[in-house]
């Protein structure tokens, strides 16, 4: 199987402070990987590093088998940030924001083609916002805004989805909707990396849970494994069940209750 994401001993420092240390992570095509960890453990930084938004200080990071600095096929990647960047000064409709997700596939100075319009339409329909497509994004609830961001990533028809805490501040109903959308994508062969605080309704989809602890990978296991019964050598948190308490990391050096 081809590795969609491949990180070999990646180190990343922000403003001189080492944030990610010795990260090795490989995600295969079609896998659904949850990145877990407490606040400040480096989950979001890892995602931002994978998207090329922050620079790695060392290590080999590859997307679709191309080294990150020379990776150009960004239309293969759909990024869903945590929140809509502070609603901007000028109003923009749902359709306009979702359309910007199509830019990675569009040519400069040319209008949208049939396929572009169809992709935008179907992305909006997938997140059930068709009847609000001409409304300003700022008028939507935060759950609906989150869905706009997901639709924006869908519009580019990517093979890899990277979502940064898509369930933060989103009610149960919308979380179920996201789980359905992701399930459909996975059925269609997409690869998903999702930062989560708790697995919630997504639990059934996750193939692997990767726990970040203080910038290092703590464990990397299928979440269904009952760790209390089948302790894996080399994985420290044997008494933990990632599905029930993913956020409660074991106390180690430097950790406080």
């Amino acid at each position: 199987m081809t590795a969609v994401i491949d990180v070999e001993s990646g180190n990343l420092a922000l403003g001189g402070r080492p944030v990610l240390r010795g990260i090795s992570l490989s995600v295969k095509q079609g896998e659904v990987v949850a990145l877990l960890g407490s606040n400040g453990s480096g989950k979001s930084t890892l995602v931002r590093g994978l998207m090329g938004l922050v620079k790695w200080s060392s290590g080999d990071v590859r997307l679709f088998d191309v080294s990150l600095p020379s990776f150009r096929d960004w239309h293969r990647v759909g990024y869903v940030p945590q929140q809509l960047a502070a609603t901007s000064g000028v109003p923009a409709t749902v359709k306009e924001v979702v359309s910007s997700g199509r830019l990675s596939r569009r040519r400069l100075l040319l209008p949208m083609r049939q396929a572009d319009r169809a992709a935008v339409r179907s992305a909006i329909a997938t997140v059930e916002l068709t009847d609000r497509r001409h409304d300003a994004v700022s008028q939507l609830s935060s759950g609906q805004q989150q869905r706009v961001l997901i639709a924006r990533a869908l519009a580019g028809e990517p093979e890899l989805f990277v979502l940064d805490e898509p369930n933060a501040g989103v009610d149960h109903h919308n979380q179920l909707g996201l789980a359905r959308t992701l399930a459909n994508l996975v059925d269609a062969g997409a690869t998903v990396v999702v930062v989560l605080h708790e697995l919630g309704p997504l639990a059934g989809l996750i193939d692997r849970a990767v726990l970040l602890q203080d910038g290092r990978i703590g464990y990397d296991v299928p979440p269904a494994n009952d760790l209390t019964l089948q302790p894996t050598a080399g994985h420290a948190p044997v008494h933990h069940h990632p599905r029930s308490q993913p956020d409660h990391v074991p106390l180690g050096p430097g950790w406080e209750l």
Binding site: H75, P81, A85, S100, G101
Partner: peptide, 13 residues
């Protein structure tokens, strides 16, 4: 796209 969400625009290449 760039003025609306700079990070997303960068991630979109």
């Amino acid at each position: 796209a760039v003025c609306q969400d700079e990070e997303f625009a960068r991630a979109a290449g």
